[in-house]
């Protein structure tokens, strides 16, 4: 039986239950040492699955600065590769998922 809400109105952000992470053949790998925390990938990612997270502190002269790095939520990443082409630091590489590495015999 399907239960529908009054007026058949959808609740907000129910799409989050749709895990699109298995769509792609490739997945992005972020090299944290290269990431400059600029957020370009986050702004571009069409699947809203990159976030900048705090990865520690850095001494800049007298001041302390928070180091931010990009982190991918692989539950939703479709492996489009957009993040890898917009990253100005070339810190994101696309890799083929293991299940696509099989060889034809």
């Amino acid at each position: 039986m399907i239960r529908i809400t009054p007026g058949a109105v959808s609740k907000p952000l129910e799409s989050l239950k749709v895990k699109t992470g298995d769509w792609g053949a490739e997945y992005p790998v972020i090299e944290e040492e290269k990431c400059i925390g600029c957020g370009e990938c986050e702004i571009f990612c069409p699947d809203l699955c990159i976030e900048l997270i705090e990865a520690g502190m850095e001494k800049k002269g007298e001041k302390e600065k928070i180091i931010r790095v990009a982190k991918v939520n692989y539950e939703y990443c479709k492996g489009c590769g957009t993040c890898s082409v917009v990253c100005p630091a070339e810190a994101i590489k696309m890799e083929l998922k293991d299940i696509y590495r099989g060889e034809l015999k």
Binding site: L13, S15, L16, K17, V18, K19, T20, W23, G24, P46, D47, L48, C49, N73, E75, Y76, K78, G79, C80, G81, T82
Partner: peptide, 10 residues
């Protein structure tokens, strides 16, 4: 606007 939508990759 959230993840889990059905747009083609890219």
């Amino acid at each position: 606007f959230g993840s889990g939508h059905g747009a083609c990759p890219g």
